[in-house]
Nucleic acid binder design. Sequence first.
DNA 1: GTATTAACTAAACGGTTTATTAATTACCCA
DNA 2: TGGGTAATTAATAAACCGTTTAGTTAATAC
Lengths: 210, 210
Amino acid sequence: MARQPGRPRGDSQLRDRLLEAALAEFAEHGFGGASMRRIAQAAGATPAMAHYYFGDKRGLYRAILEHTLAPALAEIRGQTQEALEGGDPIARFVRAFMRRLAGEPGIAAVLARDLLTPDSEIREVLIRGSGRSGADAVRGIIRHEIGCGRLRRDLDPELAALSLLSLCAFPFLAPPVAGHVLDEPPTPEQVERLATHTLALFFQGAEVRP
Amino acid sequence: MARQPGRPRGDSQLRDRLLEAALAEFAEHGFGGASMRRIAQAAGATPAMAHYYFGDKRGLYRAILEHTLAPALAEIRGQTQEALEGGDPIARFVRAFMRRLAGEPGIAAVLARDLLTPDSEIREVLIRGSGRSGADAVRGIIRHEIGCGRLRRDLDPELAALSLLSLCAFPFLAPPVAGHVLDEPPTPEQVERLATHTLALFFQGAEVRP
DNA sequence: GTATTAACTAAACGGTTTATTAATTACCCA
DNA sequence: TGGGTAATTAATAAACCGTTTAGTTAATAC
């Protein structure tokens, strides 16, 4: 591999700093409210650098999705796919999903805001990255577990998948609603407690057993 | 049809048109992305009129919250409070909540976006309007039902309330995730089906009973 | 050493934003 | 009937926006 002439890629980490600052900015203000100038300033750079690396504002936004969100969801999907043979795929999905949302603050907010916009970027990024949507994967798990006889036969897979996603995602999207259950950022113990509760509720329900 | 300057004759209803247009605009673009110009144009007015009635952009935003959101949540709270004596408070809360979110398109989106911002306006508006937060009310219901012996004693009221809110709210916040379950706007039949499923899942769980 | 190219800075451009002001006119009450 | 107030317009101010352009620094290849 012959080296090209000219200045090589320095290990400047500026690109990563821009991505990090942008994730926080987009999470806090949304796409429309986010400012390239503030992002650049937070990363200790000029706005021109953001355009140099990412072309334009939308390019930076998509870079965030591809850099942090897509790998996270791909990992979750991979782990649950692997669990389909290993066993207990629902429990593994719930724990993997919650840990990821809790791990990187800002992911949940950006994800949620993107889903609220009419022309969501995220579907394209995810589908291009992995071929299937996350909701589809969850539906597949539910169907599999019904087929195995571990979940009730009269369960609607579509509705059940929606409920499972709701239980996993919502607590991390609405900190004010979550109240004193989750700190910012949530501790691993809190996540574990929430996951255990969620699994128990999903499987056994809240009603008193006769 | 260029309007002449000066006060026109007749009842104007302009304030309500501005509120309506603003709800749609904020729901679609978020606070930062919303434009006073577009709002005014959609209402058939000039941006100066929006400032005349609401002071500034934030004032218009808070007027929306007080005008549409607070009454909706107050009604839900009132109905569930009333159901605490009548019976089946959880079922009534779930149905009332879902119907309200499905009824006025834009409410769910504005609510969700507001909850995502660090300095959420909505808490102040709700607390000023009614003294308690919605999550508190749900916690109260759960505690009451545990006390009556209708819900399991080992249930954590805080976590259970969070789960119930998640199940009710999330499907209306993330249309793409909801997939083919809910149209835009959702039909009453879809809402009823989702509510029935949600109640069955919450009470009985998804597991096969031995 | 010199050409070449990446990484970066500074400054500005054109446009849109929110918000304000002054002028204008309809309405209402004395 | 006349004056004050309410509602509306056009015009404009001032700030901020995303983006571009031109120029600088520095590292590598030859």
